[in-house]
């Protein structure tokens, strides 16, 4: 599904991502963990096309995508959410999800201005599909509420729905549990598993270890831009190197 081969990213003298390689298999949930500043978000931005890698190859469904623009990557079936939720101001939850359907629809400037039958039909289909996604994430009652005025957990769900609207093959989740309490985190972890069951592969960056260990099939550990471990959650918890990073060394 997704394969990183010796990916590097340098910002001036800082080697933010250093020779990272791993792959994400179809239908699995993979997590990237690591202390602050380990390069997790940079890695995400490289995969999603927000930043070009300095070196290395990123294959998505067998095709190289490094250096592509985010909207091109999105059109190939990769969706993402953001650490600090980015919903659209002045739009209802439903409209936010409808924006997510952008790659699934075609009507352009002219047909939009003329409100052609084609555009109207497509609009109806988009609305229907977006409503179904809100139902799937159990937030359909907030469809007509301005998205940015919703509670934090609900905003995360709207963002998830928007990402799913792309009909993605791969979903990137940047700290989906950040800022959520334990009930909301449990809710999100249930939703992520639900999404995986729909056949969507998931790659997530997360600090909440209970969430990571509960839902991941595999975990990658980053530290100062380098991959130091890649294994199942059980083995990662036993890995002395990982324990050293997280708990510090014995004096």
């Amino acid at each position: 599904m997704l394969e990183l081969q010796a990916v590097h990213k340098k910002f001036g003298g800082l080697h933010a991502v250093n020779d990272v390689s791993f792959s994400v298999n179809e239908g699995t949930i993979k997590s990237v963990i690591g202390p602050n500043g380990a390069g997790k978000t940079t890695l995400f931005n490289l995969i999603a096309g927000n930043l070009p890698p300095t070196d290395g190859t990123i294959l998505f469904q067998g095709k190289a995508i490094q250096g592509r623009k985010p909207h091109q990557v999105a059109a190939r079936g990769m969706a993402r959410t953001f650490q600090n939720i980015k919903l659209f101001h002045g739009m209802t939850a439903l409209e936010c999800v409808m924006v997510g359907c952008h790659t699934q629809s075609k009507a352009g400037f002219i047909s939009g201005m003329l409100n052609t039958p084609f555009a109207r039909k497509e609009e109806k289909a988009i609305r229907q599909r977006s409503m179904e996604l809100l139902q799937l994430l159990e937030i359909e009652e907030f469809a007509e509420v301005e998205a940015t005025s919703l509670a934090f957990g609900q905003q995360r769900a709207v963002e998830l729905a928007r990402a799913l609207a792309l009909n993605p093959r791969l979903l990137l989740l940047d700290e989906p549990a950040a800022g959520l309490n334990i009930y909301e985190t449990a809710e999100i972890s249930r939703l992520i598993c639900k999404i995986r069951e729909m056949g969507v592969t998931v790659l997530l960056v997360e600090h909440d270890m209970s969430l990571v260990m509960e839902i991941s099939d595999e975990v990658v550990v980053l530290c100062f831009g380098e991959k130091i471990a890649e294994d199942t959650p059980e083995n990662i918890q036993q890995n002395p190197e990982v324990i050293r990073i997280y708990l510090g060394e014995d004096e």
Binding site: A74, K86, L87, F88, E95, L166
Partner: peptide, 18 residues
């Protein structure tokens, strides 16, 4: 909708394929 979305967050609009 795409125009309104990019007004609010270009990054999120791009990630939605706009």
């Amino acid at each position: 909708r795409a125009l309104r979305s990019l007004h609010s967050s270009e990054e999120a609009a791009e990630a939605s394929g706009v």
